[in-house]
Amino acid sequence: MKPPPFTYCDPESVDEAVGLKSEYGADSLVLAGGQSLLPLLNMRLVRPEALIDINKIGDLQKIEGRSDILEVGAGVRQYELEDHALVGELVPLLPEAAGYIGHIETRHRGTVCGSLAHADPAAELPCTAVTLDATVVARSPSGTRTIEAQHFFQGRMATALEPEEVLVAVRYPVTPQAAGHGFVEVARRVGDLALAGAAAVVNLDENGHFTSVSVGVSGISDTPVRARAVENALIGEAPTEENITRAADEIVPSVTAGDDIHATRAYRRHLATVVVRRAITAAVASAHERSDGK
């Protein structure tokens, strides 16, 4: 199990990386953290002509907070979501979800954007990206474009990135102070990809009713799913167990994943309602904590 030969490129600037990507196009792969790519290389399931390693590009290593946006560069490692104070302050769902990604040894190396580009529908960060209405920033020789998360994920391990594009950052809208968040994942073992997982961010009005609900679900389809029907069923409602349970059932039609050795489709249909219910419930509790904390 050894990687096949490839041309190893380690550009030191984004421009150079973009140049290389446009030169090699679909015959190249970007190496960021490598925690998903190296297994594929070692198993020779991918055979790129060129590997474009972006780890030497200092410009991509940044986490930047603005008033309304948290921008995470393509070189930022997953563990930094847990450790970086700014992340927890601006988008508190991220550090919570990050703790579920693989194991600490893979989070030390794996990158946030790499997980998005890998686009595993059972992974945590794609799910949080669609939940948070994140925007992916891609560079090509013709310039920079942004792609909304819900359009970015196009299938199992498939994204809207063009062959000559390099993903350079992801932008998360800053979560309102009063919002509550929750993240729930069911996996067979600690660190495994989700059988199903859910992220939720909610805002409650002064009566405690939902003014906004954002729910993303992993593991149930070819892409992370934004649970619009669940959200719509809750706007204006009180966060009662009954309401949340009824709304969570709205996720069922979105479950398209078939049977595999770890779970059946019927199980995932059920599990999706469980994780959605639990994530929303946790988000409500978190919102209450935040308002109590004021």
Binding site: P39, M43, R188, R189, V190, G191, D192, L193, I261, H262
Partner: peptide, 16 residues
Amino acid sequence: FQSLTFRDYLIPTASE
């Protein structure tokens, strides 16, 4: 064969 890797052949970790 469905259990090609340690992602599918699930050996208990310390947490299990």
